[in-house]
Design a protein around this nucleic acid. Structure first.
Lengths: 245, 245
DNA sequence: CACTGTGAATGCATTCACAGCG
DNA sequence: CGCTGTGAATGCATTCACAGTG
């Protein structure tokens, strides 16, 4: 790993077991298990061109057991990988039957750290992206609650977005303590990103998600993840440009 | 690789040189080189807590040459990795001096496939996230232009968002041909995602970015990337849960 | 018999270390 | 010198293959 002072996507300091790649997939498993455990629900059909010749589909009945093979199929992985991944966290399966959907879901949820609890999130930057993030259902469903939102723009502070009053950036540090923030979310323009990041770090936040397209420096003790929207498009462009055309 | 019928994040079929991990970093290099080549610009200061003890900062002067070391520092990589990555695409450096910023920028831009050209994008799903994506500056700046947007909700179709009229989902297929769409972007609810994806594939789109938190099946010939917003938070939760507290 | 869990083998990606060059 | 470009070494991640089990 590069310099001792900072790096991009951290790994756990102590817990030397599950590889990062595997941890990253953990929530995929949880998600799929939840779906398998749920009732089929209404199949929302999108009007338009007919169904393609689609492969073994996320079918109806609520399964009690699921094999590594099927789980792999649903997630686009291999069965061996599923078994290997799960084995890092414990032995959950039954030979000849597979995994108990409910039980595995519970166990993994607990391991992921999203079990009985919720995590408090503070958002910096209430622009287009920031507002969309505040509105995004997926976070709340998984136990991530926005407890604070700040912006430098005086036209935005004071406004209420998604039931949350936008505070001034000056209040960031105090809000973090006041609202017991666990995770900082950065959706400010690139020029301001490092500054805001430093403020989060300074105020004691130990986990940060960055949506600004810059590399941020953080101390070893802070976990940082980056979500870069344009980067995915660009790698597609690379492959598109290379294939005939 | 798993099943022959589909997989999650594709690699190029023919071009057997640059590793995927390296291609993924290619746009990081381009981005940083662009910044290095630009004039310093106004340092947008965010009011609030003072600067942390920050390391060698993205400093002022427009550099003509940049070393692998410095580039690595800015991007949070190692110098060896930078040199290795760049070497997959050619020999751009000068011994003892480093890389010519302008030249390297031009060369990499061309290789990335975002050089003189633009790419047409169609968006499916104009909800919160979809609207934010339409408004996101970063895409246009890098040559990705939204040429179509569709939604199933009749209250949304007909509306104009960011200068684009939202069409009905039924028109997706014809719009793809009409507007010569290169990339499909999926921002619909999970239940509809596979359906929309199939429509894109059916209409001849060869590259898709999926923002819905589900695995999608696509034929080998189509490149698929997934951006999962909640997943990053969840892996942070994992690490947070594991470190004391 | 169908399936898990895991050593051992393979295949990628990153890092080391240094020869070679301006 | 300072810095690139790259073989060789290391370290991860994925896959194979099969013994073991309900």
């Amino acid at each position: 790993m590069s310099r001792p002072t900072s790096r991009s996507n951290h790994r756990p300091p102590a817990s030397r077991d599950a590889p990062d790649a595997c941890v990253a997939r953990l929530s995929l498993y949880v998600r799929e298990l939840r779906r398998l455990g749920e009732p089929p629900g209404p199949t929302v059909a999108v009007a338009g061109a007919g169904r393609s010749a689609s492969r073994a589909r996320r079918g109806g009945q609520r399964a009690a057991f699921v094999s590594s093979r099927r789980l792999a199929q649903l997630l686009g992985l291999t069965d061996a990988q599923v078994r290997r991944d799960l084995s890092y966290f414990g032995q959950f399966g039954t030979s000849g039957r597979g995994y108990d959907v409910q039980r595995l879901h519970e166990r993994l949820t607990a391991i992921l750290g999203v079990s009985g609890r919720t995590w408090n999130v503070a958002l910096a930057g209430v622009g287009n992206l920031g507002s969309a993030l505040l509105a995004y259902r997926g976070f709340r469903e998984r136990g991530f609650l926005f407890k604070a939102a700040v912006d430098t723009d005086p036209r935005k502070t004071g406004r209420t977005v998604q039931g949350l009053t936008v505070a001034s950036s000056q209040q960031l540090v105090e809000l973090v303590t006041q609202e017991d923030i666990h995770i900082g979310m950065i959706a400010v323009p690139v020029e301001a990103a490092q500054e805001v990041c430093d403020q989060f770090v300074h105020s004691g936040v130990r986990a940060i998600v960055n949506f600004a397209p810059v590399h941020l420096d953080v101390p070893e003790s802070v976990w940082l993840r980056v979500v870069d929207l344009a980067i995915e498009l660009e790698s597609l462009a690379y492959y598109l440009a290379r294939s005939q055309t």
